[in-house]
Amino acid sequence: MNILLTGGAGYIGSHILVELLNAGHYVVVVDNFCNSKIDALHRVQEITGQSFITKKLDLRDATAVEQVFKEHYYDAVIHCAGLKAVGESTQIPLTYYDNNLIGTIYLCKAMAQAGVKTLVFSSSATVYGYPATVPIDEDFPLAATNPYGRTKLFIEELLRDLAVADSSWRISLLRYFNPIGAHPSGRIGENPNGIPNNLLPYMTQVAVGKLPELHIFGNDYPTPDGTGIRDYLHVTDLARGHLCAIEQLTQWAGGMMVHNLGTGRGYSVLEMVNTFEQVTGQAVPYRIVARRPGDIAICYANPQRANQELGWTAQMNLDTMIADSWRWQVNNPHGY
């Protein structure tokens, strides 16, 4: 298929790109590189031996987005572009709303104009807010607790309205839990700007000596050891989920489907630290600090719907996720 991949130079996007190319798809990548590096795309080409087209543009540039659809025909769009740090979103909410919402609106307008109505959207488990129970099903109430999560929730509502208004749209909402790991080659991985917002890159940068210590945000949550519990899945497993969703969408006459992508198992921050030290043999000094705004205590998925409807399941265990993350960090101590 011919696929437009937005945010294809990012952490998740670059791993999706590898899977798309290895599966024989023709891909055009668009990215504004505000929180990603062109080097990631060069390395994807090296890993796969496949070529693809790259266009540097901002999705909020409506004219540029329309031009992308005039230059190429697409069977589907995978939309990963967006700002994605929970903590940062609480500090600059307008930037998040502007970037994530406006970019998606212009993308959907250009798709409709070009007659391309098959879309996989990169959503997030943050749309569930404070879940009453775990594991989390797709039909749980939605109520995000931070601006980042609300942008994902608002986009979901936007796409739901679009699908109701025009039944020829085929839309997949993939609610990611916590992707970690890296490509086993060690050539592409998570490359955050500044101090990482996510746990694994924070730990690997401490272990490699780039940062002095890990800050654990709160140890007074209602969990067995007081630290937050999350559902971690390998980024390559996550990337495969997009291929499964695309294949399933092509069999639909129209409508929307929603799937959690997670393992169904939660690990606390302290469990992650201990496992990391066991797998890598590296110490991770840490300090307990205040909770972060917008964080919740426990979040892990019920992935059964994705298993049954998409034929997808997470395959890699936590040791593999950590080993791949560490390989990436050791091979790229300063990122790209």
Rank of each mutant, 00 (worst) to 15 (best):
L174N: 12
E190F: 00
L233W: 01
F154W: 06
P141G: 05
P135D: 10
I155Y: 03
H215E: 15
N146K: 07
D166K: 09
I180K: 01
L153V: 08
L211Y: 15
D139S: 12
N198A: 05
N197D: 15
E157Y: 10
R175A: 08
N146F: 08
R160K: 13
G209A: 09
S185L: 08
N191I: 07
Y148Q: 06
E190H: 08
D161A: 15
L200M: 15
E138F: 02
A165M: 13
D137V: 01
F140Y: 14
R175W: 00
I188D: 10
P135K: 05
G228V: 04
D137L: 13
S168M: 00
K152D: 03
I171W: 00
E213D: 02
N178D: 01
L233N: 04
L233A: 07
P212E: 12
L153Q: 14
D137Q: 11
I195F: 01
N193S: 12
F140T: 03
L211K: 12
H215L: 14
L159W: 05
G181N: 06
G186A: 07
T223W: 11
Y232D: 03
R160M: 12
A182K: 00
G149K: 07
D220I: 03
A207D: 05
D166M: 09
I171F: 02
A207G: 10
G194L: 00
P222W: 10
I188E: 10
A144R: 05
E156D: 13
A207K: 03
P147G: 09
L162Y: 09
P201V: 05
A182G: 05
L200N: 04
F154M: 13
A165C: 13
A163H: 10
E190M: 10
Y221H: 14
A207P: 07
V208Q: 09
A144C: 02
L158P: 02
E213H: 08
L199S: 09
S185C: 08
L159T: 08
I188P: 10
F154K: 04
N219R: 14
I180S: 07
G194N: 09
R150C: 03
R230H: 07
R150V: 08
R230T: 01
P179S: 01
P141M: 00
E213I: 01
P192M: 06
T227S: 15
L158Y: 15
T204G: 06
H183Q: 08
I216V: 15
G226A: 11
T204F: 07
A163C: 13
I136P: 08
R160G: 11
N178K: 00
D225H: 10
L153A: 04
R150L: 12
P135N: 07
H183S: 03
P147N: 11
G149N: 10
Y221T: 05
D220F: 10
N178F: 02
H183T: 05
Y148M: 07
L199D: 02
L233E: 00
N198K: 11
N219F: 00
E190L: 04
N219K: 13
P184N: 06
M203P: 06
E156L: 04
F177M: 08
I171E: 00
D220M: 10
R160Y: 11
S172R: 09
A144I: 06
N197P: 07
E213S: 11
L159V: 09
I216H: 08
A143N: 11
N197W: 03
G194W: 03
